[in-house]
Simulated assay, not measured.
Amino acid sequence: MRAKDIVGIFDIRGKADSANEAFLSQAAEGGRIVTVEAGPYKSFVVTVDQIYYSPISSATLKRRARQTGV
């Protein structure tokens, strides 16, 4: 995954929980979900082509992205 392809980094259980569930369910049906490591998952990263589940919190992923200049 390239940094320029990242659309957003989100909490699995965010404020719009039902919207997240609907979005992720539709993505799973379309075969767009990729699991990075075994769960439990804390966040998901949306790219242009795929959605990646991650056991790392969205805050940590965002902080790492800022440190690397993403």
Rank of each mutant, 00 (worst) to 15 (best):
Ala59Tyr: 11
Lys62Ile: 08
Ala19Thr: 10
Glu37Met: 15
Arg32Met: 10
Ser58Met: 06
Ser54Arg: 03
Ser18Gln: 12
Ala65Gly: 05
Asn20Leu: 04
Ser57Asn: 02
Lys15Val: 10
Ile33Glu: 05
Arg13Ser: 08
Ser54Tyr: 04
Ser43Cys: 07
Pro40Phe: 09
Asp49Gln: 14
Val7Pro: 04
Val48Thr: 15
Arg13Met: 07
Thr60Asp: 09
Phe44Gly: 01
Lys4Met: 11
Arg32Tyr: 07
Ala19His: 07
Gly39His: 09
Ile56Val: 15
Ala19Cys: 02
Ser18Glu: 13
Phe44His: 02
Val36Asp: 07
Ala27Phe: 00
Val45Lys: 01
Arg64Pro: 00
Leu61Val: 04
Lys62Gln: 09
Ala65His: 00
Asn20Met: 05
Ile6His: 03
Leu61Arg: 00
Ser43Asn: 06
Leu61Ala: 02
Met1Gly: 14
Arg64Ala: 11
Gln67Cys: 07
Tyr52Phe: 15
Asp11Leu: 06
Ser58Asp: 07
Ser58Asn: 06
Thr68Cys: 05
Gln67Arg: 14
Arg66His: 04
Ile9His: 00
Thr68His: 12
Ile12Ala: 04
Ser54His: 08
Asp49Thr: 15
Ser18Val: 12
Ile33Asn: 03
Arg66Ser: 11
Arg64His: 04
Thr35Ala: 13
Gln67His: 12
Thr35Val: 10
Ser57Lys: 05
Asp5Thr: 13
Ser43His: 05
